[in-house]
């Protein structure tokens, strides 16, 4: 494996870790449930995607990479469904969102 691939993989892993941290900060910092959905969205798409991409570069062309691609594929398809189910359940339970009515 070339040194360039190695460095690129570490950039992906550390970048992904940063986005996971951002998602975690967002979940603690944002004011209500609906806005926290967006923070989880950050760590689910960008954070998980970059960490898995970094691991794929480490794995090279092998069975390991195929499994990582499958993990990513399942995450991409189940993630929005779970988020939507949560948002719809909260909406149906009449959980009040914080809304900013000012005109932009």
């Amino acid at each position: 494996m070339g040194a360039a691939v190695h460095i690129l993989s570490w950039i992906c892993l550390l970048g992904g870790a940063c986005f996971l941290l951002v998602g975690a900060i967002g979940v603690l910092r944002l004011p209500d449930f609906y806005t926290r959905l967006h923070a989880v969205s950050v760590s689910d798409t960008m954070g998980a995607g970059l960490v898995l991409a970094g691991l794929m570069l480490q794995g090279g062309l092998s069975m390991v990479t195929v499994k990582l691609v499958l993990i990513f594929y399942f995450m991409i398809f189940t993630g929005p469904t779970a988020t939507h189910a949560l948002a719809e359940a909260a909406l149906q339970a009449k959980l009040k969102p914080v809304v900013d009515d000012r005109e932009p």
Binding site: Y34, H38, S41, V42, T45, M46, G79, H84, A87
Partner: peptide, 8 residues
């Protein structure tokens, strides 16, 4: 899937 918008 796009952060910043969620279908409710």
């Amino acid at each position: 899937l796009v952060p910043g918008t969620v279908t409710m």
